[in-house]
Design a binder for these strands. Structure first.
Lengths: 233, 233
DNA sequence: CGACTTCTTGATGTAACTCAATCCCGGTGG
DNA sequence: CCACCGGGATTGAGTTACATCAAGAAGTCG
């Protein structure tokens, strides 16, 4: 990670989409800004937790390894988002996950001790961070259930819907650079299976391919695949 | 739920295993205590969030439905534990999960508005609750990865190890009443598959059956199944 | 004792993983 | 400028883990 020489406005620091104005003054005092290249690993599973990060620019994938060649992408942190907060724990000081830049990005690092100190004197921040964790837990458990019971097709459909919702559309395609491999890791399936599923969805006129990117053409139909149709027997 | 007439000591209120002494005075003021019967639903997915609960006695399963006849058990709240806190959210006021008593139990209910008020004036509590959520998120994401990549045998092995760790041994068996159906929902597999897997584990001398309960006889071997053996190729 | 769950087992189906071969395309160097 | 190379994209075939279905056995409760 190269330390950035440019100055970035502190206004870009958010926890998820909730702005945290009480956080801003602190950041000015104690931040380090890094430039990271596409594919660069910012920290990895097992590393000692040294602090938390905010995204100034670019998208960061948060993922968890399995064996030597498999992983599961848990979340994508976008501009303004926080990451590395999964290192906060009452039990361990080791990151349970890795963070990797999906594209060239700029991130802001806050020392852990400093972050804790700030939290301890700033009730509103601690409260909001708690709610943020609560939201992430809900999301995580929803995905967990889907992983257990939903088919790959349903999971791909849902992932695409979420991605389009989150990143929007640009040049008639979902505005995120995400390799098929990453998409596969995101839905928890293999490259080939996801590939075939995408083809299927194209044939069924639910989505269309725009270069390497994807555009949803039939939201309703896609949503249909995410439903628990077996229950209507 | 029947309102309990007995008086319970407030000392039994914890968040997970972390005692929260600052919470105790509040509980005296504003608690309702309920007796719930085995199998009774305390609240269910989709209900409006009215508050959070603490377990005085018994085990409570926290689960999420899929379709009409499938579910995934996310967690089991034990004596002293909190549940219903998944209803806390910045976005919605609807429980994303259900809570059902695994056995006759006694729970303590705290009104949501009151809980929020307490959190807002009690920094230490908010901070601890935040850490508690962080821990739960870690655990949830670990399970998620396992669900995506681990075999049923590995997941059953891990579940049994965790259960024995958490509930201990009594009468030469893991000290929890958990039907095979619930165990299946806990590992995210079908009844039959889990049944066969248990048999396998007995044949391999990893576990032994004690009535309907299970005892681990070979921890090491069981742990072996939870490893990512494919990586050693 | 009979009805009713829960357990047990076998047979069968299938979604998804694995492995392998070929294809395609952009980049590189001669 | 074109031939060559390498890595991702694409497709096929085989295998496997797991779900599903079905049906009998064994508890268990009124």
């Amino acid at each position: 990670m190269k330390i950035s020489k440019k100055e970035y406005p502190t206004q870009n620091c958010y926890v998820s989409s909730n702005c945290l104005p009480e956080w801003l003054p602190a950041i000015n005092v104690n931040k380090k800004i890094y430039e990271v290249k596409k594919g660069e690993v910012i920290f990895k599973e097992g590393d000692e937790v040294t602090g938390v990060y905010f995204v100034y620019d670019g998208n960061i994938k948060v993922h968890k390894k399995w064996g030597s060649d498999k992983e599961l992408i848990l979340r994508i942190a976008t501009k303004g988002g926080i990451f590395g907060h999964r290192g906060l724990s009452s039990k361990s000081n080791i990151y349970p996950i890795s963070a990797t830049a999906l594209e060239n990005a700029t991130v802001c690092f806050i020392d852990l001790a400093f972050f804790y100190t700030t939290l301890k004197v700033n009730l509103d921040l601690a409260f909001k961070l708690m709610l943020f964790f609560a939201d992430e837990l809900q999301e995580s458990e929803r995905k967990m259930r889907n992983l257990a019971h939903m088919t790959v097709k349903g999971r791909v459909a849902q992932a695409l819907l979420q991605l389009q919702e989150k990143f929007g559309i640009k040049d008639r395609a979902i505005d995120i650079i995400l390799s098929r491999q990453d998409l596969a890791s995101y839905v928890g399936a293999t490259y080939e299976t996801v590939f075939r599923t995408i083809n299927e969805l194209v044939l069924e006129n639910c989505i269309s391919l725009v270069g390497k990117s994807i555009l949803i053409t039939d939201n309703k139909k896609l949503e249909g695949f995410t439903l628990q149709t077996e229950s209507v027997k």
